[in-house]
Each structure stands twice: as C-alpha cells, then as structure tokens.
C-alpha cells in the first residue's frame, strides 16, 4: 500500500525565552519520531497532555516543519514552502473547539469557504458543499446559522468544510473533547463512515479510548517519543504499560484484565462490552469441563 503520510526521524525543538529575550531553555516537543500511515487507514495518536502528540499532528499538514528529519505528505516534503497549500489541501485539520473554526453566517457558506480559497469555480463549490454536507449527515442544516447548532453538529460542519476541499487525509485533534455523549458519537460515526465509504485517511487524536477500538493502528506518544505502536488489540494488551504512561484503556479491556488477574481464564485483551460478556460466559463453561 501507498504511504500517504510518513515521518522520518522527526525532531521538533523550540526555544523558550525570558522577558528580555534571553534563551531560558530548549524544549524538545517531538523526539526522533518515525511513523508511516497508509492511504485509506484510520489511525489514532494517543498520549497524555504534553506528550507531543498535537505537535506531531501539526507536522502532518505543515503547520509546523521539523527541526530535524523529514515529513512527507502524499510524497511532498513539508519543508518545501512552495508546496504548503498543496499539502494543506491534501491533509486538513479539525481542532478541539468547534467555536473557533466556524467563520460563515450560514452552514453552507462556512463549508464552501476553504474551497473558495483554493480558487475553485462557484458551481463546483456548490456541488462539493452539497456532497460534503451529505457525507457528514448535515445536509438538512445547510441553511441554518452555525451558532444554532449543537457541538457535535458544529464539529461535523468543520469536517464538511475540509471534505469539500477533497483531501486525502483528515487530522482531528481531540475533536470530541468538548462534546456531549451524543455529539461524540455523531463525530466518530461521521469520520468512520468517511474512512470506510470514501476512503479518506483519518488521523484521530483523542483521550477517549472507547473511540479508537476500531482503528487500524494506534501510535502512543510519551515525552515526545513514539513509545508503542500497533493494532488496538496489540496496544490494549499492555494495560500496565499504558497506565504507567498516564493513559487509560477501554472499560471492557480494564475489567477483562482485572478479572483475569483475579484468576479467571479470560483471553486478553478484551476490547468491547460484547466480547467481555462472551468471555465471561466462556470462563464459566471452562470450569465445568
């Protein structure tokens, strides 16, 4: 498969200065990270606050360029300044707070805004806006004012604005952190559908482990370094290690692990509620044998 996003030995440092402009210290926010994400994958980046995950994510659409190492997005080196807009068209970013991302007075205007900046013809913009809104299930709100929408709806409008630019990849930095449970589910369902049905590559940053049970790959960051990488089943096998890193695991995974530690023959890791219930059933039967 084609590597859509690739980082090679990426390090990002920034200098902290005091009030007089003297260098206080140098912070290494990302430390020698190499990852690759294939076209059409849905991946998650997790890590505690300050682990470097957002800084890494900002490299994936050239909001930041590495101090050392190289980032390629669809084969383009992000340090090539002349290609910055190509990169941002290929890899769009959705942020945590929906209120900071919406600019239009009407939903469909807001969604078309990015396309306008790309210099696309008006008729085509309208077509794209319609398709984008349908793809996140917000078409019926096209004429609404964004500030009348719920948090989950606003986030889906932000996602539609990026989809309208026909990106290959969407990076979402804690898109559900501000949302209520229903809003969270709407956003996760929308990006999962974009991934499965329209083959958009999804890079999701989140603290909510339940949201990433179904992704293809998880990258775990700590102190700027990539410390674990694997499928959800591989990563969530390491409950103790994740706990040490200040992270949690899905609730069913945690309960499964604790039941196993209490002596029950549960096969680990358990990822979903349904799996846990069937493992408990199996553990009961195995005793009667």
């Amino acid at each position: 498969m084609n590597k859509l996003v690739k980082t090679q030995d990426v390090t990002y440092e920034y200098v902290r200065r005091d009030d007089d402009g003297n260098v206080e210290n140098i912070v290494t926010a990302v430390d020698d990270v190499s990852i690759s994400i294939e076209d059409g994958q849905m991946v998650a980046i997790i890590g505690h606050n300050g682990s470097g995950k957002s800084t890494l994510a900002k490299h994936l659409n050239a909001l930041l360029t590495p101090t050392e190492g190289t980032v390629w997005v669809d084969g383009i080196d992000t340090s090539d300044e002349s290609r910055v807009w190509d990169i941002r068209q290929k890899a769009g970013m959705v942020l945590q707070n929906p209120d900071n991302q919406i600019v239009g007075q009407v939903v469909e205007e807001d969604v078309g805004f990015g396309c306008e900046n790309l210099g696309i013809k008006t008729e085509e913009i309208w077509e794209r806006v319609v398709d984008a809104l349908k793809s996140v299930d917000m078409y019926e709100y096209r004429g609404s004012s964004p500030n009348k929408l719920s948090g989950g709806q606003k986030q889906r409008v932000s996602i539609a604005g990026i989809i309208a630019m026909k990106p290959k990849c969407i990076i979402l930095d804690e898109p559900t952190a501000m949302l209520d449970p229903k809003g969270r589910k709407e956003v996760i369902d929308a990006i999962t559908r974009l991934n499965k049905e329209e083959n958009v590559t999804i890079i999701l940053i989140t603290h909510n482990m339940e949201e990433i049970i179904g992704v293809d790959r998880i990258f775990v960051m700590d102190k700027g370094k990539l410390v674990m990488e694997g499928t959800p089943r591989e990563v969530f096998s390491e409950v103790d290690k994740l706990t040490e890193l200040g992270l949690t695991v899905p609730e069913a995974t945690l309960i499964g692990k604790k039941l196993y530690d209490s002596g029950l023959p549960i096969s680990l890791p358990v990822l979903t509620k349904e799996e846990l219930v069937s493992e408990i059933g199996r553990a009961r039967l195995s005793k009667f044998r």
């Binding site: 719920s150 209520d180 449970p181 229903k182 809003g183 339940e210 899905p250 609730e251 069913a252 309960i255 509620k273 349904e274 846990l276 219930v277």
Partner: peptide, 13 residues
C-alpha cells in the same frame, strides 16, 4: 443526548 457510564452499560448487558 447523554449516556450511562461504560461500566454501567457492561453490567446492563
């Protein structure tokens, strides 16, 4: 638009 905690959902299942 709300929910129950995940542990509660597991016990209900």
């Amino acid at each position: 638009s709300l929910d129950i905690p995940e542990s509660t959902a597991i016990m209900r299942l």
